[in-house]
Each structure stands twice: as structure tokens, then as C-alpha cells.
Amino acid sequence: MHEMSITVNVIRIVTEQMEKNGATKLNSLKVKVGQMTAVEPDSLRFCFEACIKGTPLEGAFLDIEEVPITGRCNTCNRDFKMENYYVSTCPDCGGTAADIVSGRELDIVSMEVD
């Protein structure tokens, strides 16, 4: 359960950015969570809602975009979406080794503020 420490980082970054932009209220926040990370979107939402009470972030909508896992085939270099990270067979050449090229994201994309 490290979503709490992830949330603390999110709130710190957003609070700093709100101050920098002269914002007084956060309406919504967009984050990207890759499916390869060990971050559970539901837990992240739960922690976020618990932590923003009584702050300028209170009431904000947390928009979580889950990024699917994309593999790059070690044989033919083609990128393909992995349904499961452990089923990494290339649909093109049948190669079974692939490097993960997306799905590790844990990013704050944008915020909508007043």
C-alpha cells in the first residue's frame, strides 16, 4: 500500500504548481498510471480524496488515464500492445522476448484551476 506516499507526492506537486500559477481552487487533475506500475487506481483515488479534505484541492475530480502495456519485439522491433505483460508473443513474427516501452508511466499531466 504505497498509494499513500504516491498521493503525498501528487499533492505536493499540485500545491506548488497552484501557488506558482496563482490558483485558489483545483477543479480537476489528470494523471497517467501505467499498467506496469504497482499503483492501483482505486487506491490512489481513495487516498487522494482522503488527503485533499480541508485543502484548496478539496472537491477536485481525479481523472486517471490507465496506460496499457506496449512491448517492442526483440526479434522484429515491432511495437505491440500486450494484453497481459506475461503474454509477450509478437503478433507479427511470433518472437517471445519483448521490452516494455510503455506502461511504466506515473505522471501528472495537467490540472484545471480557478
Binding site: 504516491i6 506515473l106 505522471d107 499531466v109 495537467s110 490540472m111
Partner: peptide, 15 residues
Amino acid sequence: MHDVILNEKVLAKNI
């Protein structure tokens, strides 16, 4: 109301 693009890694500080 306005949008602010951040594109920042959540764990940027740790990195």
C-alpha cells in the same frame, strides 16, 4: 477557470 499543463513525473523528487 483554466488548464495548466504539468507533464511532471509523480516521483520526480525521488528521481
